[in-house]
């Protein structure tokens, strides 16, 4: 079987959950991979929960959703409660410590508890928290390099947002640096 990686990103509306997944999907496309991005959200316009699943593969992708994704980013506590149990054994869990007041329980995962809001605010815009978390994930998950995300942002960000490219790069790098120094590796 060919290698397939599934990434689920969850949080509440407004945290950039769906966008982070789309950037990842663009990076996969630009790297010549097969990819699917699929959202799941309630009927409300804002304030509800949101998540998306990105599947990256070398061959035609079957299911765009899986029960046990290889990697999960949770940006708030309800998402940690819901998705921590489903991460595939040995997978990666990135949790936003800024909004989560407990440590993840799973010992068999790569755990990154990252204060994504604070890091984003230090860079100058709290909306960058999704890129901080994505940088942290990719430092721990060998699916695509952080550089591929930067190239995807540069290639696909609409003209009116292009001035934000440098801070997005910074957010990705800060997230990756944090993960490389602070990640808790699985206890085998």
């Amino acid at each position: 079987m060919s290698k397939q990686t599934e990434i689920l990103i969850a949080g509440f509306g407004g945290q950039g959950v769906l966008f982070a997944g789309q950037v990842l999907a663009y990076a996969a496309l630009d790297s010549g991979k097969e990819v699917t991005w699929i959202p799941s959200y309630g009927p409300e316009m804002r304030g509800g929960t949101a998540n998306c699943t990105v599947v990256i593969s070398d061959e035609e992708i079957g299911s765009p959703v899986v029960r046990n994704p290889k990697a999960v980013i949770v940006l708030n506590l309800p998402s940690l409660d819901k998705y921590e149990p489903v991460v595939a054994p040995g997978g990666v869990l990135v949790a936003n410590a800024s909004l989560i007041n407990r440590a993840p329980q799973r010992q068999d995962l790569v755990n990154v508890l990252i204060p994504a809001n604070e890091i984003a605010e230090e860079i100058g815009d709290r909306r960058l928290l999704n890129m901080v978390a994505l940088g942290a994930l990719l430092a721990m998950l060998p699916v695509l390099p952080v550089e591929a995300i930067k190239e995807a942002l540069a290639a696909h960000l609409p003209e009116r947002h292009r001035r934000l490219l440098p801070v997005n790069y910074q957010a990705l790098d800060r997230g990756a640096q944090f993960a490389l120094s602070q990640a808790r590796l699985p206890v085998v």
Partner: peptide, 9 residues
């Protein structure tokens, strides 16, 4: 709804 909502190359 999956086909309508999902993104793929």
């Amino acid at each position: 709804g999956n086909i309508g909502q999902m993104m793929e190359p």
